[in-house]
């Protein structure tokens, strides 16, 4: 039984089947993204009460938190895809990692910009070298290095090899530097907003639009990564033909 399920999963490493699946899933994901992001933002921005201390600026949370969530998890996804490339050598996974790097970089920049705007009104400064902010700067460096490495090597196979190893090593070193930064300084930034421990979470009136925005951003990522991976596969095919 388990074998059959895994066979069904790995069969989508075939580019043709993958593209067929992408053609079905990507419009769905795009539709879900539109249907959740717009209501979440409208609900979050116009129909929630302002915070007693931070006033209206607290509503940046509906972009800031999903952006941060995606920026970290896209790197995790790239690491897994890189491992799949190094172990099973499926082109789809290498190209998926390549195409999600740009989205991850965008999400990191979005998080940093919204965060600094938020910080300017609540902390009185655009940037402090707080552990969480520093770890996002580090993440930005690793995304940039990954993209630079892809662009600097012409042969697809070699580039995929090298960038996969870079991505895996990068996840180790990014985590290392993150925990070292946390060890050195505790910082200004508040603790986790969406932990599993419900006592610490924010109020329900913010919680539900936030979850909706998270779902919307995630499906937006799924849509974008499927479209970009399909494009990359087509480009690769064109290169092979001529």
């Amino acid at each position: 039984m388990e074998n059959r399920v895994s066979n069904k999963f790995w069969k989508f490493s075939n580019p043709v089947l993958f593209k067929k699946l992408a053609r079905i899933i990507s419009p769905l994901a795009g539709l879900i993204a539109i249907l959740t992001i717009i209501p979440a933002l409208v609900w979050g921005i116009f129909f929630t009460s302002p915070d007693y201390k931070q006033m209206e600026t607290v509503k940046i949370i509906f972009i800031h938190v999903p952006g941060a969530f995606l920026a970290i998890n896209i790197y995790l996804m790239m690491t897994i895809a890189s491992m799949v490339w190094l172990i099973r050598r499926h082109y789809v996974s290498a190209l998926a990692a390549k195409s999600s790097a740009m989205i991850g970089l965008t999400m990191t920049i979005v998080t940093i910009i919204t965060g600094s705007l938020w910080g300017s009104s609540t902390w009185g400064t655009y940037w402090v070298w707080d552990p969480r902010l520093t770890s996002f700067a580090i993440l930005l460096c690793f995304y940039l290095g990954y993209i630079l490495l892809w662009q600097s090597i012409k042969s697809l196979e070699k580039a995929a090899n090298v960038t996969s190893l870079f991505c895996i090593l990068g996840s180790i070193f990014a985590l290392l530097s993150r925990y070292i930064v946390f060890f050195i300084d505790q910082g200004l930034h508040q603790g986790p907003t969406l932990s599993l421990d419900e006592e610490k979470n924010i109020d329900n009136s913010y919680y539900f639009p936030l979850i909706l925005a998270l779902v919307g951003f995630s499906s937006l990522f799924v849509y974008l990564v499927l479209v970009r991976t399909t494009t990359e596969l087509n480009k690769f095919k064109l290169k092979l033909i001529g």
Binding site: I138, C141, F142, G145, L148, L149, S152, I153, S155, K158, A159, V162, L165, F166, L169, G170, F173, A174, L176, S177, I180
Partner: peptide, 21 residues
């Protein structure tokens, strides 16, 4: 890792993040 493209500028740039810890 960067044997395929041996520009020292690239090497310097992508090594820096690994020196953070």
């Amino acid at each position: 890792l960067t044997l395929s493209n041996r520009s020292s500028f690239l090497l310097t740039t992508i090594t820096i993040p690994f020196y953070f810890p």
